[in-house]
Amino acid sequence: MWKLILFTSILAGQFSHVNQRKILFVVIDDCEKWDRGSYRPGTSHFSYTRKGREFPLISFGHAWIDEADQLTTDRSTYSDILKSDYVFTSDLSLDEWYELGNDPDRRIFLLPPEDYCSAKRFVYNYQFTVYEVRVHVSASGNDLAPLEIPIAPIPAVDTLRRKKNN
């Protein structure tokens, strides 16, 4: 019997790993630095894009064009968010942004700036809506390694000149 229990629990563990990716809450706390964009009218789809010309370009999108890629929403209190894995956008370093943009193993839920930077945060047990999002962080242009050029360099004319025969 104990073997059956052990096997069942291992199996359950395996499946729960598949179905439940880790969740990270991203709180946009530097509220004035983000632009909200909307997609099609009549949908709840939206995006947040970091303002200005600073690189990398960063955007969050809660939108999809294929039902298979549908993103979810959830509800959570601020204190519950703080008990989970969470980050504030103002705290993220460049490397952490890139890591966030390239992490396939985590589902990211966003607490929008309109909610965070409002009095709702101080209402006891207020249930925020958090939105599952995709993140885009633009890549850098450092994609060429130093090159070995198998060609002759410019002659070293200052080193080994010979005297001219006159």
């Binding site: 939108a63 995709r134 885009h136």
Partner: peptide, 13 residues
């Protein structure tokens, strides 16, 4: 900015 974000956030795989 908008196009690059839309491509990443909307296109399929």
């Amino acid at each position: 900015k908008e196009d690059i974000g839309n491509a990443k956030n909307l296109m399929t795989k």
